[in-house]
Amino acid sequence: MESYMITAWLGGLLIGWLVVLHFLMIGRGAGCSSAYACVVDVLHKDINLFGSLDPMRFFFVLGLPIGGLIHTLVFQSSWGLSFDMGVYEQVLPVSTALKVLVLFIGGTLLGFGARLAGGCTTGHALVGGAMLNWASMLTAVLFFVVATATTWLMFKVI
């Protein structure tokens, strides 16, 4: 475990309040995955691929790396570029090119799956959960079950 991590219950409390604060300030729920659709929409100006999008999602997600940078500068020993993957080094291919390929394919599945499911961990688990939307909660559980099964296959079987 990383040394800078805060207690789980405190982190959960703060993230929960952030979700509520987002509703209060912006008037809508938070979300991450549709920000990618905003980017694709700008890159693919000629046709409208996604219908109506909330541009605020883009600004929300734009803030995430800034938050990550601030955290690293304040609480971690030093900021630097790294390609360290921790325990994932054991299960992913040794060659960097193949690692990049696996991560890219994984990312593709995340992006495609999030659009098909109408949201990611933020939209379904955190925000959908806060609204007690059963379809969102079911989706969040399925995300978790499929990811758990895949991780066990990666670490224990293959």
């Binding site: 997600v61 690293t72 994984g106 995340l110 098909l116 399925l142 758990t148 895949t150």
Partner: peptide
């Protein structure tokens, strides 16, 4: 969507939010 997303989550140990935050780190 959950099946695709779940496999992607396991392969990358990230989701659409955390992957972007990682860039800042």
């Amino acid at each position: 969507g959950s099946i695709f997303f779940g496999i992607g989550w396991a392969l990358t140990a990230s989701c659409p939010g955390t992957a972007v935050a990682m860039l800042g780190e």
